[in-house]
């Protein structure tokens, strides 16, 4: 019997299905009762997606986990990105090398329009992906996002062209993430249901910069993932 068949046969025996032999310990179980799953939990918040209240809560939760948040209008976005790039630690410590960014292929070009001439932007495309070494040498990454949840301070990237493949938003030490306020929902179920349209896309849920609590359960921000997370919240008005 193959391992597959044997494991499935053991499970059937454990669930008391007739004529299926026994488990490894020689047991036969009883059939479990039918289960109805109660779903009394909240599937939506009190506040509408994109409302002032959810945006305010998102800002509060992001800052609680040491992310840096700026709220801007669409017109102000390019200048805000340029200002953050000018302040990057790499730009300050090593002025001889130009600041280098990576942007996924589908990122709106206009967002990077205000960068100064000495900033180098690498576009990561499916045809010419950067190597791990290339990415490691860059100062920051700029991406869009799919959806955000205010109660938990979570932003989700799903690998579409404006967010890039997972390595792009992982290896650089600084992540500039642009979130539109109409992408912000209050609860986890609202977020999951927006994502469930495309469950096959590789997703990264991000709640603040990387962190660890492994030493005496003290939270320390910044381990292997980007140590700095800047969130640019863009409201349409």
């Amino acid at each position: 019997m193959s391992a597959r068949e044997e494991v499935l046969q053991r499970i059937r025996a454990a669930l008391g299905q007739p004529g299926t032999g026994t488990t490894a310990a020689g047991r036969v179980g009883t059939a479990p009762a039918a289960v109805e799953v109660p779903r009394e939990y909240r599937t939506a918040g009190d506040d509408a997606p994109g409302s002032e209240a959810v945006v305010e809560q998102l800002v509060d939760r992001l800052e609680d986990y040491m992310a840096h948040v700026r709220q801007v209008s669409p017109d102000e976005l390019p200048a805000a990105i340029a200002a953050l790039v000018a302040e990057l630690p790499g730009a300050e410590t090593d002025r001889s090398a130009p600041t280098a960014l990576v942007a996924p292929s589908g990122l709106e070009a206009g967002w990077l329009a205000a960068l100064t001439d000495d900033v180098v932007v690498h576009r990561d495309t499916p045809e010419a992906p950067l190597t791990a070494g290339d990415l490691d040498a860059l100062d920051a990454v700029v991406t869009a996002a799919r959806v955000a949840c205010s109660e938990t301070g979570t932003i989700v990237l799903d690998g579409e062209p404006d967010q890039g493949r997972r390595a792009v938003s992982l290896v650089p030490d600084v992540h500039l993430c642009v979130v539109r306020t109409d992408q912000v929902v209050q609860t986890v179920p609202e977020m999951v249901r927006r994502l469930s349209a495309h469950p096959e896309r590789p997703q990264t849920w991000i709640s603040g910069p990387s962190a660890t609590s492994d030493i005496e359960l003290d939270r320390v921000e910044g381990v292997h993932g980007p140590r700095t997370l800047h969130v640019l919240l863009v409201s349409p008005r």
């Binding site: 493949r165 997703q203 993932g225």
Partner: peptide
């Protein structure tokens, strides 16, 4: 004891060009 852990990864089989 966090509202959400810093990172959650979800993947489905193999995604060409990613991972």
């Amino acid at each position: 004891g966090e509202r959400m852990n810093p990172y959650t990864s979800l993947w489905t089989g193999v995604t060409p060009g990613d991972g």
